[in-house]
Design a protein around this nucleic acid. Sequence first.
DNA 1: CGACGGCTTGAGGGTTCTCAAGCGATGTGG
DNA 2: CCACATCGCTTGAGAACCCTCAAGCCGTCG
Lengths: 246, 246
Amino acid sequence: MVNPLVRKLENFVRLSSEERQALDRVVQNTRRLGPREDVVRDGDQPRHVNLILEGWACRYKQLEDGRRQVISIFLPGDMCDPHVFVLKNMDHSLGTLTSCLIAEVSEPSIREITAESRKIEEAFWWEMLVSAAIQREWTVSLGQRLATERLGHLFCELFMRLDAVGLTNGTSCEFPITQADLGDAMGLSTVHINRTLKELRAAGLIRLRGRQLTIPDFPALCSASLFDPSYLHFERDRSASAIGDS
Amino acid sequence: MVNPLVRKLENFVRLSSEERQALDRVVQNTRRLGPREDVVRDGDQPRHVNLILEGWACRYKQLEDGRRQVISIFLPGDMCDPHVFVLKNMDHSLGTLTSCLIAEVSEPSIREITAESRKIEEAFWWEMLVSAAIQREWTVSLGQRLATERLGHLFCELFMRLDAVGLTNGTSCEFPITQADLGDAMGLSTVHINRTLKELRAAGLIRLRGRQLTIPDFPALCSASLFDPSYLHFERDRSASAIGDS
DNA sequence: CGACGGCTTGAGGGTTCTCAAGCGATGTGG
DNA sequence: CCACATCGCTTGAGAACCCTCAAGCCGTCG
C-alpha cells in the first residue's frame, strides 16, 4: 500500500526517496476503527495528530439541542490538525464516517520530520493552508449556494481530492457516505438531500448508486455548481526550482 | 496607541517588554484605507501579511453571478493569513468594511520575530488556530443556526473578540458594519437581517443604533444563540509555566 | 435642495423543513 | 430457514423560514 500522505504531498512538491521513507516511518501506530466511531471527542486534550490511511472521517460539532454539523470531511492522506497541541482542549469532535485505518502521529515525530526536510515542512504548510481554503469554500457554499450547487460543488471537491491520492477510476470513485451525513455536512435535511440528488441525476450530472459515484461530464458539473478548483492549489509550481535540495 | 496585536496575544501568553517592543517594530509600513476598498484581490500574488491596527476588514469571495460571501471578519489585532506566501495566488479577496489602518508586515520580519522568541512563535500558532476555530464555528452557524441564533452568535463572538483587544465599554462596543455586509457574512438577505435585528431588539437581547451595539444581558444572548465561547480559546493557561523564558 | 446610502416595512413567492409512511437490503435470533 | 428488527433510501403533503421585489423613510453631504 502506498502511503496516501506521500501521494498527496507530491501534488505540491517532488519528494526524494529519503523524504518518502521518512514520511513512511511516521506511520507507525495505526488503529482500525469501525464506521461512526469517535476518534477524538469535543473537550478532550489532543494527544497526537491523526492521519487517515483508509476510509472517510469527519470533523463535527454537536449543538446542545442535538443539531449536528459536519465541518470537514477527511479522506485518505489527510492530517487532522497538525498543530492542535498548542490548544488545551478540542473544540470539536473527530469521527469516522466509514471503517477507517488511522495513524497516530506524535508531536515529536512531526517536529522531527519537518526539521529534517525543508521541503516536507513547506509541504505541511501547503496542506494546512489548503485545508483552510477548503473550509472557506464550505463557508461560501453554505452561505450562498443553492442545494443543487452545494451538493455538486462537494462532489467536484471530493472527486478532485480523491484523484490527488489516486482513488478515482476515470470518471468514477467510491462514495461511501450516507445521505444523512451529507445532510449534516451541507446544512440540509436528509429528505432534501435525497430530492436534490434525484434532481442532479435527472440532469445527467451525476450517477450515484450503492457506494459508487460517477461524474460523466466533470466540466458540466463544475459550471452547474460554480466550482472553481483554484482554491485547492493543486499546482506543482515550485517543484522545478526545488528539485535536488533537501 | 497600544499595538492591538500585543494586546490580543497577551490573552494567551504573557510577553516580556522586549517581546512587546519586537512586535511594535513589526508595525512599520502602515497604510490608511477608506471603507469598502480592496486590500488584496482574488488571484493576486500575496506580498505581505496584513495586520489590522484600526477599523474592520473582511475576507470575501465573489461568485461569477455576483453573489458575495463574507468569509471572515477582521478586527484590530488580527493578522490576515500569516503564511500565505506558501501559496502562489490568493483564492479570495481582502477588503475593508470601514476606514482602516493596516500594517504591511514582510515575510522576513515574521520569520525573524518568531525565530527570536519561542513565546511569540507559540502565540502566532495560537492566533492561527483560533482563526481556524472561528472559521469552523461560522460553518456551524451557516449550516445549523436559524437567523436569530446566527446573528446573536456573531454578536457574541465579535463582542468577545473586541473585548480581548480592549475595544468594549462595559456592555457596549462600536459596531460599524452595515446590514448589507452582515447579510453577506451570515448568508442572509439584507431584508431578513433587518427583520431579525428587529426581533432580537424586541426580545431585549440587543440594542443597536447608529454604530453602537449594546448587549444588556450577555449570558442571555449566549444561550439564545447557542454560543459557547470555548472555541475562542481565551485561556491563559500556559503563561504560568512560560513566565521568564524567552 | 436634491442625491445618495442605509434602514425599515409590506406582500407574495420559493426553497427547504418536518412529519409520516413505505420500500428494499442486510443481519440476527428463535 | 424464516420472522423480524434495523438501516438507508424514497416519496407525499403541509408548513416554516427566508427570499425577491417594491416602496418609503431618515440622515448626511455636496
